[in-house]
Nucleic acid binder design. Structure first.
Lengths: 195, 195, 195, 195
DNA sequence: TATGAATGAGGATTCATTCAT
DNA sequence: CATGAATGAATCCTCATTCAT
């Protein structure tokens, strides 16, 4: 499953289109025109338009797993791990804003089972890692135990998602990095045991 | 801006299609066929396909304002108001699952400024009401003041959104009502001052 | 299943194209252009390109059944019925040469089960009627009994088909009517008991 | 016109595809994939896709000429020669069912004059040989003279063609060999002078 | 108030073929 | 002898919308 240069270019361009104009504008014509090749040429590199999206999701999925794993495995405190979770995602989204468009727009994929599956996979992986961090924190007595673990996770991820969604609807118009750091602080405060 | 019966029927059917098959399947053909009228007939009642969506959003916007206003104005405690916020939304979404599809899929409207505006209006209205409730709670010394108001709001709304999103991706497959109540409890715990 | 004027026009034009240029040239573009309408217009009248072909086959199927029934029911001698079978088909093919292109080119439909079914239906109906005629003739002692009924039918239909096929490959370049009459005479001679 | 191994492989594979999926599925892509080479590679061995079909027809043409010549030259009785004609063809078609698909689907080639010519050549060669056999039989007083020679030929070949066509539409689902033998018997009976 | 007929623009995809390597 | 990359032309089909009736 190695990705050729052309494939990467196609994926990047697709991501760019999604970021700038939304998924609805991601047509084979727009895609090929922007790359500077013919439409049929796309089919030399991907079987389908769907396959392009799947590859993109797969790509992010890998990134996600790696990053989350690094965070989990680091010897930070649980609180720091949560802050790092926010930070790394913010960095990524700022670098490639489209990623957020793809990742947080599940609805769009509804018609395509393959995509839904990919999406769900990514989401539950993230959830799993976050739970892991939180569990650790609870065990260490640093995070609150009066609230079900799953709710801690939902609050954490929900806040992150909402922030990113607003940033996107805002046309990437504010400093996600900074806002993310601030929000992370608050989330940690709310998730931690009271001092 | 009175809505005729036919208009209501069109909106309801549109909502149904969105709920069952996703926004991408909301075509004039599908819509008219399901109602049992011809495609051009739709244009007797709405100027545009867009106008239908705007009307739907407007419709929800009104509901939203009314409900939130009732909650804010009630003489419940701030904590109860938050719980009520979750409850009323859950009730609504269970009654009309499509609403959630429309409300939480902002990405889809990206191409249509009118829709984005409608959406943003609804979102900031909700945010405003929630802030109001939280402010009140902070003033009363019942909600925590160590975290910026806006972050309290983001955590609250973010959690609610994430729950509903999962419910939707899950094909409405779990008891949103019950889960929502449980989550509300946890959110309240995290948002309130420690006992 | 009443056929509108437009539908008939589409069918006729499709038949014409098939006759003149072969089935491979029957594209939605060619069809619409020749009628003088847009491609999408076709889809107002038929769900599919396939549906057009099915309608054509169905149309012929009806004609076939009626004609064959008339022949079978008439009070001609079995020999005359066979001659009439040849004659009526020749008349029809001369009137609408395309019919023969459609009817005797089964291979073309191979990919589409619906069409194969239609075709097979027509073929076996014809076979049935012919057998009926032959049976009658055998019972009356006028047709030979030393050869299995099915073989009499195959020889009869096979000869007719081959004649028409040649006429078609010959670009309709000889007098099918006359040749058909002559061939019918010979077939009758071979199928009848020797004098 | 020597055929290389690769060319033979390409022809065989083309024949296989035609047999299994019909001529319409014979695409350069399908062909190359099935052989395990790239599409352009085909063009090293044949100038055209058309050239492949021409070669196939040519190939069969040679076989046809040889076989028919052998039959004509043998010292069988005319009746036996007809039976042998059926038998040899049946053997060949059973060995390579695609041959029948190619041979009896003239319609498909309509657009390509080269192919039509090949086809017509084959057909008239066959017709010629058959006439030769029949003539011989008539001269010997064993075959009927009350019917024009050409009609004897048409009945003979028409019956054979129809049998094979049915076998093909039937997805090669019955024992062509046996049926062919039976049919040959009947045809001989009808073509011979009455005892 | 409704519709039957039509359409321009665009959708994803397939095809046989070419060319530089 | 082979291929990876590319393509122009074409394929069937869908969409939101319009217009005369």
């Amino acid at each position: 499953m190695n990705i050729t240069d052309r494939q990467q270019e196609i994926m990047d361009t697709a991501i760019a289109i999604i970021a700038e104009e939304g998924i609805q504008k991601l047509t084979t014509k727009a895609l090929s025109r922007r790359i500077g090749i013919s439409e049929p040429a796309l089919y030399r590199h991907f079987e389908n338009k769907l396959a392009i999206l799947v590859a993109i999701l797969e790509h992010f999925s890998q990134w996600s797993r790696i990053v989350l794993w690094e965070i989990v495995e680091s010897d930070r405190s649980p609180e720091d791990k949560i802050r790092e979770l926010f930070r790394r995602h913010a960095v990524r989204f700022v670098e490639s804003p489209a990623t957020s468009a793809v990742l947080f727009s599940e609805e769009i994929f509804k018609n395509h089972p393959e995509l839904v599956q990919s999406m769900t996979g990514i989401m539950s992986a993230a959830e799993g890692f976050v739970r892991h961090i939180l569990e650790e924190g609870i065990a260490a007595g640093r995070l609150r135990a009066d609230v079900p673990l799953e709710h801690l996770a939902m609050v954490t991820l929900g806040a992150l998602r909402l922030l990113v969604t607003r940033w996107r609807l805002n046309d990437y118009g504010f400093d996600l990095q900074a806002e993310s750091d601030r929000l992370a602080g608050s989330v940690v405060a709310m998730v931690a045991v009271s001092p």
